[in-house]
């Protein structure tokens, strides 16, 4: 896959150009645009390609000058305005530290005191919700953060992890139980298919089949 082609930019485009193109493509293929549309599946495929292309290209650049990533602006107290009111990146960093230390009360207090609610706010609120047992709320908030800022890999990754967690429970039971009947089925089926393939090639794995 040619990532430049997927994003529709020239070879050797600058970081800013890549980001701009990515945002446009995400907007174009966003699932919200394709609700109840038969092309939704195709759009999803395209979006996946766009994300892969973006990942590939960004690997070549140093991490984060996108203001919403955690590793940047640490302790620099940069202010940004979004919607109503301004917010301070340092506040978000403090919230993250409190969450990591398990100090839920303090983290909540800081979030509640903020008037501006950018994507990062919803993301951190979601993390808190998961911690205190409000799983539904957490899922809603993290999804919202990801929708507000589709370029943020952290939000996307967290959401993917959540979705796979809830699938993951299903695999729990299969690893914890040995269902021997389906193993036999698998073995027999595999052998039969091998035999068919072998015969196609001119040989014969199982003579009596």
């Amino acid at each position: 896959m040619n990532p430049y082609e997927v994003l529709g930019i020239r070879q050797g485009a600058s970081e800013a150009e890549i980001k701009k193109a990515y945002k446009e493509k995400v907007k174009k293929y966003h699932p919200d645009q394709y609700r109840n549309n038969p092309l939704a599946g195709l759009a999803e495929e395209k979006l996946k390609q766009v994300n892969e292309a973006y990942d590939m290209l960004m690997k070549g650049y140093s991490t984060g000058s996108s203001g919403s990533s955690y590793n940047t602006n640490q302790g620099q107290g940069s202010s940004r305005s979004q919607g109503s009111g301004t917010y301070n990146q340092a506040d978000f960093n403090r919230v993250r530290q409190y969450i990591n230390m398990g100090n839920i009360g303090q983290a909540e207090r800081i979030l509640n005191s903020m008037t501006a609610r950018p994507a990062e706010w919803f993301f951190l609120r979601g993390l808190l919700d998961l911690r205190i047992g409000n799983y539904g709320q957490g899922y809603t908030n993290i999804t919202r953060a990801s929708n507000m800022d589709p370029t943020n890999m952290e939000y996307r990754q967290t959401l993917n992890n959540l979705n796979s967690t809830s699938q993951g429970y299903n695999t729990y039971r299969t690893t914890n139980r040995r269902d021997s009947s389906s193993d036999i089925c698998k073995i027999c089926t595999t052998l039969y298919l091998c035999d068919c393939c072998c015969e196609c090639m001119g040989g014969d794995l199982i003579i009596c089949c």
Binding site: Y135, G136, T140, L162, N163, S166, G168, Y169, Y172
Partner: peptide, 15 residues
């Protein structure tokens, strides 16, 4: 979808 997430995630925490 919502209930599926909540129920499965909760069960995962139980486990």
């Amino acid at each position: 979808e919502y209930l599926s997430f909540v129920l499965n995630y909760t069960l995962k925490q139980v486990c």
